[in-house]
């Protein structure tokens, strides 16, 4: 880790709880001032993550691409002072404001999750969730999904390649849809079989429905400082919102 204040060194429970607090707070905002203030605070957190600015921007790309559609559609559908109009449809100021709010919120939420949750390793996150008494099944689901999504993708790539080799070109016709349906079915079937084998392997190593955790989270002084810092920030945000 870059510095000894890094988020990865904290108790995962602290990190998960604070990311939840921020997430709920941000999601409930309807005005700009607390959001802008939050943006300022998030910048502090970025320093504590192992990611570079470039990496973070890359992670934000998909969200903003999705938001682009909001910008294209919503301002036309709200009423208010028109900025310009296409035929009889007006692009309204109220719509722009609304979109700006959504964009700011979405990016902030992503930033908080990137800074806090993504800084933890999957096993840290899992052990944190486990000790917060989240349902064991959900925790396994998370751990196994992390491990096996990659393999599912590989399976899909393999099948797609085998289609391509045999000259398959996707078109909008029944044949294409049928082929994709078979492909999906095959992936599901293979995933099921793999699941069966993985379960066998787990049972052979003494698995009895519980994943014992190798690292038990500990609340240390670092967590206290981090919580104090986050708490102060949060109070400031609340104050801004209430006045």
């Amino acid at each position: 880790m870059k510095n000894n204040l890094a988020i990865a060194q904290l108790d995962p429970r602290t990190v998960i709880l604070w990311s939840l607090v921020y997430a709920f707070f941000l999601a409930a905002q309807k005005s700009f001032l607390p959001l802008l203030a939050s943006l300022f605070i998030v910048l502090f957190y970025i320093v504590l993550t192992p990611f570079s600015c470039k990496e973070i921007l890359k992670k934000l790309k998909p969200v903003n691409f999705f938001l682009l559609f909001f910008w294209l559609i919503i301002p036309f559908s709200l009423q208010g002072k028109a900025l310009f109009s296409l035929g009889k449809y007006a692009y309204t100021l109220a719509g722009v404001k609304f979109c700006l709010l959504i964009t700011l919120k979405a990016n902030l939420l992503m930033l908080i999750f990137i800074c806090l949750l993504l800084s933890l390793s999957p096993s840290q996150l899992a052990s944190g969730l486990q000790s917060l008494k989240i349902s064991e099944k959900l925790v396994y689901l998370f751990l196994l999904a992390y491990r096996y999504l990659f393999l599912l993708k590989e399976e899909k790539d393999k099948l797609l390649r085998s289609l391509k080799i045999r000259g398959f070109k996707p078109k909008t016709n029944l044949f294409t849809y049928k082929t994709y349906a078979y492909l999906l079915g095959l992936i599901l079937l293979k995933a099921y079989e793999r699941g069966d084998r993985v379960h066998k392997a787990l049972v052979l190593r003494g698995f009895q429905g519980k994943f014992p955790s190798l690292y038990s989270p500990k609340f240390t002084q670092k967590d206290l400082y981090f919580s104090l810092f986050s708490g102060l920030n949060f109070l400031l945000l609340l104050y801004l919102q209430l006045t």
């Binding site: 390793s121 999957p122 096993s123 751990l143 196994l144 992390y146 491990r147 393999l151 793999r194 084998r197 993985v198 066998k200 392997a201 787990l202 190593r205 003494g206 698995f207 009895q208 994943f211 014992p212 190798l214």
Partner: peptide, 20 residues
């Protein structure tokens, strides 16, 4: 790939002993 489940090698190797 059916046998290796955990994010890191060390955790995977420690899984059996933990179950014991």
């Amino acid at each position: 790939d059916d046998q290796l489940i955990f994010p890191t090698v060390l955790e995977d190797v420690a899984f059996g002993p933990l179950n014991q």
